[in-house]
Design a protein around this nucleic acid. Sequence first.
DNA 1: GAGAGAAACTTCCTATCGGGAAGTAGGCAC
DNA 2: GTGCCTACTTCCCGATAGGAAGTTTCTCTC
Lengths: 148, 148
Amino acid sequence: MTTMKAAQKRAQAKVEYNAFLAGCPSRQLLDRISDKWVVLILCALGGDNSAGQPGAAHADAPKAMRYSEISRLLIGVSQKMLTQTLRSLEHDGLLTRTVTPTVPVTVSYELTDLGLSLHHMTRGLRSWAQTHMAEVLANRENYDSRTS
Amino acid sequence: MTTMKAAQKRAQAKVEYNAFLAGCPSRQLLDRISDKWVVLILCALGGDNSAGQPGAAHADAPKAMRYSEISRLLIGVSQKMLTQTLRSLEHDGLLTRTVTPTVPVTVSYELTDLGLSLHHMTRGLRSWAQTHMAEVLANRENYDSRTS
DNA sequence: GAGAGAAACTTCCTATCGGGAAGTAGGCAC
DNA sequence: GTGCCTACTTCCCGATAGGAAGTTTCTCTC
């Protein structure tokens, strides 16, 4: 392991990990990142926290956010799932958790480089959902009228 | 709504779809596509069904697949979830379902253009999971040893 | 002509999971 | 001391995913 160059390791990884196989670690990883809260949290920390103009590819402004900020932005997330998801992301090295012993304790979360690389993917997902929303709604109506 | 001019509608649409809002349709859509089976099925139908050779960034070969083919490829999926997910994807217009009345009936599924556009995203997710697997595993070990 | 078998589901039961609400810790303000 | 603040943690329950067995329609075998 330690004798391999990074490039070699990466090359081998591609053959070894196949996300279609149930037992493969990469499958478990894919299962975990294919989660609505993971996607939303990464989008939030990645900086696309505005309403998000579809066309306007505003530059990433990955920023540190406090627990309560995230909870306020991701309307509908329960405290339990937020904490749980943040912990698992920290565990996987996608974000860092920093505790500042201020008056009431302050905890802030920030994407790591690894988390940022995944953010590029989740950002695409979110933007896809927003840009193709109308099309999907039309398809649903179409489908429902055909089958009725 | 119908009395609005196109420009006004467009202006409002920009604010209307925000995946961070719990009630927004795009949030529901994002929740649905941020699902492990959705991601895996799209990857399967999108054509990256091989283990993924290192150098060969093989071109997409989106192909029609039969129910049993998908079920065999996505090891671990239950028939119930496979059927359910395929139906919802068909409902949203991401794929087509074709029944051929052969000897034992043949049902084949194929991505639509819309599904194909989402496939670009899910493909990225899968490839991310496979390429960064080693890094994540290392982070986990690191984290566990720190906290123990 | 009575199974057996194959593809694509469908149904039922149970284990697991997510959401809601209430409880906790530790420090400060009143 | 009472209450409030943030960031959780715990408990309970309804929703959901998974496993396995049943269903349908045809054809092929014995």
